[in-house]
Design a protein around this nucleic acid. Structure first.
Length: 422
RNA sequence: GUGGGUGUAGCUCAGUUGGUUAGAGCACCAGAUUGUGGCUCUGGGGGCCGUGGGUUCGAGUCCCAUCAUCCACCCCA
């Protein structure tokens, strides 16, 4: 029985890795320009971190975590997202004690036990940023602008930015009560999922896609209209700043987001045409999270982008990625007796920074030439009886088909000349 | 967790109402005289027909299960 990659996981082969390197580079560069620095966090954490940080009632914690016990009986979980780990690291290393804000970014795999489909995997990759220690609405805007900047640099100009404010614990608490009262009479008309949402996290009834549920709760009070003055002001400033910086968005009353820790600003980015899973990024403010995880009362805001989905969107643009896998030079030996000599020349060229290859499959002279051609070598160095006896090397330009004898002492210079002329 | 589609060579796919040693194209390897590429020609290696059961004289073809994959629901990145 052939062992295959586990469900929902996949290999990124060399022919694809250049695409990944391309988007990773753009993300990192953009984040650095915005003043964010890379943090590398563990792939797994104590299960409790996610239970507390992400929230017990979320889909992630309640049914999507890869949880296991290690040999000492600890319950560990493959990280389903990055924010909780960043918060843990922040607290663990007392990073809050220094200059604020703290601005971090991360790139790496996340794990969720979900049913795979287009743009959704069990091991998927996220690029994310977190900014701790400022409750200034301008930093909310900065984070969103950074997200948009990454998209633009990737050439993705068609996006939909959904924006909402989920308020603070105070006004959201009041609103939650209002909403419960509004829904109560229609409770039994809700779908099964919403029945549980109603008792556990009524706000999430709002972003249910089920038409019947929407009809049932029609005329519900919106979160937006129930924000306290402070939250309203904060939200207004964020929107204003986005407008001033030419970031278009749409206010979305139904955007609640799945994770429990969000406060105030919440946003989600969609790119049409990449399948049902069109959210390429999302995030928001989480002012209670650091304290919830045992740290000081420190505000925070961040987002995460899904690399696979971005790649789908980038692919749709039809751009080509330079692979640069062709060698500059191929060493062909006319007889196995000269292989060791070929090996030495190979290393000589490589030391000089020339991308060089030779045959490792006992091919005959003709087959070596064929091979050199197929792998796209620009030049071939031939070593045969005559070369060894007379002490020269034959250098062939594969494009012009010119070939001439060169002095081994001047090999590197001759090769460079040939490659340049081309 | 739910629903639907698909699983035949490395890749893309044929495979007739179930019937002999399962095919093509591409790719790979080797030859077409002696130390030399892209074209052409010839030949060659390769398939537990996803897996396990069942029906049948006989299954790649039919039935069941299972696994994987794709698409959608759900949810999110």
């Amino acid at each position: 029985m052939l062992i295959k990659a586990p469900r929902g996981t996949y290999d990124i082969l060399p022919e694809d890795s250049s695409r990944w390197q391309y988007i990773e580079k753009i993300m990192k560069e953009t984040a650095e320009i915005f003043g964010y620095r890379e943090i590398r966090i563990p792939i797994f954490e104590h299960t409790e971190l996610f239970e507390r940080g992400v929230g017990e009632t979320t889909d992630i914690v309640s049914k999507e975590m890869y949880t296991f016990s290690d040999k000492a009986g600890r319950s560990l979980t493959l990280r389903p997202e990055g924010t909780a780990s960043c918060v843990r690291a922040l607290i663990e290393h007392s990073q809050y004690g220094g200059l604020l804000p703290i601005k971090w970014y991360y790139v790496g795999p996340m794990f969720r036990y979900d049913r795979p489909q287009t743009g959704r995997y069990r091991q998927f990759h996220q690029f994310g940023v977190e900014a701790f220690g400022s409750n200034n609405p301008y930093i909310d805007a900065e984070v969103i602008i950074l997200l948009i900047e990454v998209l633009l640099r990737l050439g993705l100009e068609e996006y939909e930015l959904h924006l909402n404010s989920v308020g603070c614990p105070e006004c959201r608490g009041e609103y939650r009560q209002k909403l419960i009262e509004h829904i109560e009479p229609y409770q039994d008309r809700l779908c099964k999922d919403c029945q549980t949402r109603y008792t556990q996290n009524p706000l999430r009834v709002l972003d249910c896609k089920n038409e019947a549920c929407h009809q049932a709760i029609e005329g519900y009070p919106t979160l937006f209209s129930n924000l306290c003055d402070k939250c309203q002001e904060h939200y207004a400033k964020v929107k204003e700043t986005l407008i001033e910086n030419e970031v278009s968005f749409m206010h979305d009353d139904n955007l609640v987001r799945g994770l429990d820790y969000y406060t105030n600003t919440a946003f989600e980015i969609h790119i049409p045409g990449i399948g049902a899973q069109s959210a390429v990024g999302g995030g928001g403010r989480y002012n209670g999270l650091v304290e919830e995880c045992g740290g000081p009362d420190l505000p925070g805001i961040g987002f995460a982008m899904g690399m696979e989905r971005l790649l789908l969107a980038v692919d749709k643009l039809g751009e080509k990625f330079a692979e640069d896998k062709e060698p500059d030079v191929f060493i062909a030996v006319m007889d196995p007796a000269y292989e060791s000599q070929g090996m030495k020349i190979l290393q000589l060229l490589r030391k000089a920074g020339i991308k060089a290859e030779k045959d490792y499959n006992q091919r005959k002279a003709k087959a070596q030439m064929k091979y050199a051609d197929k792998i796209g070598a620009r030049a071939v160095i031939l070593i045969g009886e005559e070369e060894v006896e007379k002490g020269f090397l034959t250098l062939r330009n594969m494009r012009s088909k010119e070939q001439f004898q060169v002095d081994p002492q001047d090999l590197v210079r001759s090769v460079c000349k040939t490659l340049l002329i081309d």
